[in-house]
Measured scan of single mutants.
Amino acid sequence: TRVETATETAWISLVTALHLVLGLSAVLGLLLLRWQFPAHYRRLRHALW
């Protein structure tokens, strides 16, 4: 049971790290898009909202 718990903890930390990385890359990508294509971003936002 001790090994299982350790594996579970490792998986949880791995998944958390993955989610953090994905979230950060998504935010960075959005910022980059907004910085590179302001007109396109505004049009996209206008279409979405």
Rank of each mutant, 00 (worst) to 15 (best):
I12G: 02
W11M: 09
S25A: 14
H19M: 15
L24A: 10
T9P: 13
A39W: 09
T7F: 05
E8F: 04
T5F: 01
A6H: 04
T1C: 08
S25T: 11
L32W: 11
L33M: 11
V21N: 00
T5R: 00
E8C: 03
G29E: 02
R34I: 11
T1M: 15
L44G: 04
E4W: 07
V21P: 03
A6F: 00
T1A: 13
I12N: 06
S13I: 08
L24Y: 03
V27G: 11
L44F: 15
G29S: 12
T7P: 15
L14M: 10
H46V: 08
W35M: 08
S13K: 05
W11C: 03
W11H: 10
G29D: 03
A47V: 11
Y41I: 14
Y41T: 13
L18G: 02
L24S: 04
W11A: 01
V21Y: 02
L33W: 10
R45A: 08
L20Q: 00
P38G: 13
R42S: 12
L32S: 09
R34S: 07
P38A: 14
A39G: 12
Q36N: 12
L30I: 13
G23C: 13
A26D: 01
R34D: 03
H40N: 12
P38I: 11
G23D: 02
A26R: 02
R42E: 11
A6E: 06
S25D: 03
G29M: 11
A17H: 01
R45T: 09
A26I: 13
Y41L: 12
R34H: 04
S13C: 10
A17P: 07
T5A: 00
H40S: 13
L18C: 07
F37C: 14
T9D: 13
H46P: 05
A39I: 13
P38S: 10
T7R: 08
R45L: 08
A17K: 05
I12C: 04
A39S: 14
T9Q: 12
W11L: 08
R42L: 13
L22E: 01
R34N: 05
W35R: 09
R43M: 09
L18T: 08
W11G: 01
Y41K: 01
E8S: 07
E4P: 03
V21R: 01
G23N: 03
G29V: 14
R43T: 12
H46N: 14
V3C: 03
L31S: 10
G23I: 15
R2W: 14
T1G: 04
T1H: 07
L44N: 00
E8M: 00
L28Q: 01
T5D: 01
V27C: 09
E4N: 09
Q36I: 13
L18N: 04
T5N: 01
H19F: 15
R43S: 12
L32A: 12
T16F: 11
L48M: 12
L33Y: 05
R43E: 08
L14V: 10
L24V: 08
E4H: 12
V27L: 13
T5E: 02
R34Y: 09
V27P: 01
R2E: 15
E4F: 08
L20P: 04
T7V: 12
S25V: 09
L20V: 15
T16I: 15
G23T: 10
G23K: 01
H40Y: 12
A39Y: 12
A10W: 12
A6M: 12
R43K: 14
R34P: 04
L44W: 10
I12Y: 09
R42G: 12
F37V: 06
T5M: 03
L44E: 03
V3T: 01
L48E: 02
Y41H: 07
A47Y: 14
S25M: 07
R42D: 10
R2P: 12
I12F: 07
A6T: 12
Q36A: 09
L32I: 12
L33Q: 03
L20I: 13
L32M: 11
T7S: 14
R2D: 14
W49C: 06
A39V: 14
V27F: 13
R2K: 12
R34E: 01
E4R: 08
P38V: 11
W11S: 03
H46C: 04
G29F: 15
S13M: 07
T16Y: 05
W35V: 07
L30T: 06
T9I: 10
W35T: 09
T5K: 02
L44R: 01
A17N: 00
T9C: 04
S13Q: 10
L14H: 05
H19A: 15
A26W: 10
L24K: 00
V15R: 05
Q36K: 12
A10S: 13
L24P: 04
Q36P: 05
L24W: 03
T7N: 11
L24D: 01
Q36T: 10
R45Y: 06
L20F: 14
A47K: 12
L14R: 03
L20R: 03
R2S: 15
T9N: 08
T16H: 03
A17R: 01
L14T: 04
L30N: 00
F37A: 06
A6N: 05
L28D: 01
A17G: 09
G23F: 11
G23Q: 04
L18R: 03
S13L: 07
W11P: 02
L14D: 05
V21A: 13
F37L: 10
A10E: 11
G23A: 15
V15F: 08
A17E: 02
V21D: 02
V15P: 01
L14S: 04
H40A: 12
Y41E: 07
L32F: 09
T16M: 09
W49T: 09
A6Q: 10
H46T: 09
F37P: 00
L32K: 00
A47R: 14
V15I: 14
Q36W: 10
A47G: 09
A10Q: 12
A10M: 06
L20N: 00
Y41A: 14
L22V: 14
L20Y: 03
V21K: 01
L48W: 13
R45I: 08
G29Q: 05
V27H: 00
L28C: 07
H40W: 11
I12H: 07
L30S: 08
A10R: 06
E8G: 02
A6S: 14
T1Y: 10
A6R: 12
A39L: 13
W35Q: 06
T1R: 07
A26C: 11
T16V: 15
V27W: 08
L18V: 09
T7I: 09
E4Q: 14
L30Y: 09
L31P: 03
A26M: 12
R42W: 07
L18Y: 05
R2I: 14
W11Q: 06
L28A: 05
L22H: 01
L31E: 00
S25H: 00
V3K: 01
A39P: 05
H40F: 14
A47Q: 12
W35I: 10
A10T: 10
I12E: 02
L20D: 00
L18E: 00
T16W: 06
V27Y: 09
L30P: 02
R42M: 11
E8T: 09
T9F: 09
L22F: 07
W11D: 02
L14E: 03
